[in-house]
Write a protein that binds this DNA or RNA. Structure first.
Length: 269
DNA sequence: ATGGTAGACCTTCTA
């Protein structure tokens, strides 16, 4: 089973490119972030025509997440617990009803910039709430994958020049420690397994290149889109592919997202 | 020198 994540930076502005990628890559399930539309404006029909079911947690203008799946979806949860006042759409969870079921959680973690503001405090609180939910989910002993745009650069190997990122919310020690804390619960970063088991050196580890300052042309990227696997999922890990080519592809008037799809394969079929 | 790009949308905000 191929499970993917992709921050599309507006699903409607990106639709031709997104559909083209789905037709080619054939993910079984994909988490989308920054759909940037309310539920009613999600392009359900386009995905359904490719054979996908959709669960959407939209929001006007900002954020918004969705799960699209070739298998039926059940037990859908929209929004992360732990703060009733939080109105930002950044969390969606569903059970993928494949022959071997998979619990699939798509997140769009707060960016948190600038450091020291309420936005940064919100990021840290959101990480605490995610930690609590991921601890709960472990008790289900499901094949669980928590995937999405974490807005966290885990290590200095995951950026092109450390000095540029030292004051950024994506690279703060407290944020990186919180990411390590998620792994300490018992989750495995699919990329770590990918690196440890690779037959050849990893040619690319970045998943995001900024639109500004020619970042893509200079290969000034960062790794911020992650798959965290429960022990039951990690036992079935087969492969991981970062679709770097998506960053340079255009389609008529549609320009690429600043993030690329990241796909893992699990042996659950 | 505080740039540069993209998307939604109402004029700036977010990333």
């Amino acid at each position: 089973m191929k499970l993917a994540t992709w921050n599309v930076n507006s699903v409607n502005a990106r639709l031709p490119l997104v559909l083209e990628w789905f037709a080619e890559a054939q993910p079984d399930v994909c988490a989308l972030q920054e759909i940037k539309c309310i539920d009613e404006k999600f392009p359900y029909e386009a995905f359904e025509s490719l054979g996908y079911n959709c669960a959407v947690h939209g929001q006007k203008t900002y954020n918004g997440v969705a799960i699209v799946s070739k298998f039926p979806l059940s037990d859908v949860t929209r929004g992360l617990g732990g703060d009733e006042a939080d109105e930002q759409s950044r969390y969606i969870e569903a059970l993928i009803e494949a022959p071997v079921p998979v619990r699939f959680i798509g997140i769009y973690l707060p960016n948190g910039n600038p450091v020291g503001t309420d936005k940064y405090a919100y990021k840290l609180r959101w990480l605490e709430r995610l930690h609590a939910r991921m601890a709960e989910v472990l008790d289900y002993e499901d094949i669980t994958v928590v995937t999405g745009d974490y807005n966290i650069i885990p290590s200095k190997d995951d950026l092109w020049k450390e000095s540029v990122w030292l004051d950024d919310a994506l690279y703060q020690p407290a944020v990186r420690q919180a990411y390590q804390g998620l792994k300490n619960l018992g989750y495995t970063d699919a990329f770590d397994v990918h690196v440890a088991t690779a037959q050849h050196p990893i040619a690319n580890r970045y998943t995001f290149w900024d639109y500004q300052a020619g970042a893509w042309q200079k290969n000034e990227g960062i790794r911020i889109d992650h798959h965290l696997m429960s022990p039951q999922a990690a036992d079935r890990f087969v492969d991981m592919v970062i679709h770097k080519d998506a960053r340079g592809r255009t389609h008529d008037e549609a320009k690429p997202s600043d993030h690329v799809p990241v796909v893992i394969e699990l042996a659950v079929e």
